[in-house]
């Protein structure tokens, strides 16, 4: 369970939000709403532990994430604006390296299966730089299928995706929630998943 209490965060002199509370239980999904510049990305990055909050506490299963450190990182996955994939490497190499970084070495067959599910059949071994923006995003999203994290923090996961891919992601999210996963995300595109709660930053 993720529990955020009285969180305040600022960038430079500008206070983005304060007194923010949220709770996320297994099987729940939450969307962060807000205009551009309202601090959605900062909130997600704070939840990842990149940014030190000015005030407040972020707790995972009752303990402060700062004390948990690597134990928290093992249970969460972050997907940011940047795809975190290497142009020079193939989709397959990228996925296997990401999985290795998370401490879960991935065999080639599983990696190929995940990439195929993301609709990248036949492109597994091409250098990522020859793929389109949407396909590159799919390579990044393939991590959702192979990394076993309970908490997903997704910042604009649908950028550059076509209708089919969005439907695919909706399915993946529903599966994750059914398996007692937790998701917190931002998006400016419609996403049809049952039971989305929302939190507005104003």
């Amino acid at each position: 369970m993720l529990e955020v209490s009285n969180l305040a965060c600022s960038r430079g002199d500008h206070r983005l939000f304060s007194g923010l509370n949220l709770e996320l239980h297994p099987g729940q999904i939450m969307q962060i709403l807000g205009a551009n510049g309202s601090g959605k990305t900062s909130l997600l990055r704070t939840l990842c532990g990149f940014i030190q909050p000015d005030e407040g506490k972020i707790a995972w299963e009752g303990s402060d994430v700062r004390d948990l450190g690597e134990d928290y990182f093992a249970e969460m996955m972050y997907l940011g604006h940047l795809n975190a994939i290497k142009d020079e490497l193939s989709a397959l190499e990228n996925l296997r390296i990401s999985a290795g970084l998370s401490g879960l070495p991935l065999n080639e067959a599983d990696a190929i299966a995940a990439l195929r599910r993301m609709g990248l059949k036949g492109r597994e071994r091409l250098p990522v730089k020859v793929l389109s923006q949407g396909q590159q995003r799919r390579v990044a999203l393939a991590r959702l299928l192979v990394i076993k994290a309970r908490l997903w923090i997704l910042d604009e996961p649908l950028t550059a995706l076509d209708v089919n891919a969005v439907a695919l992601i909706e399915g993946v999210l529903a599966e994750h929630l059914a398996g007692q996963g937790m998701v917190i995300f931002t998006t400016h595109q419609p996403l049809n998943v049952a039971g989305v709660r929302s939190l507005s930053l104003s």
Binding site: F73, Y78, L82, N83, A84, I85, S102
Partner: peptide, 13 residues
């Protein structure tokens, strides 16, 4: 620049 470093910082290692 490509975001890999973020993922490295979040690696449970």
């Amino acid at each position: 620049l490509d975001g890999t470093l973020e993922q490295m910082l979040l690696a449970p290692q």
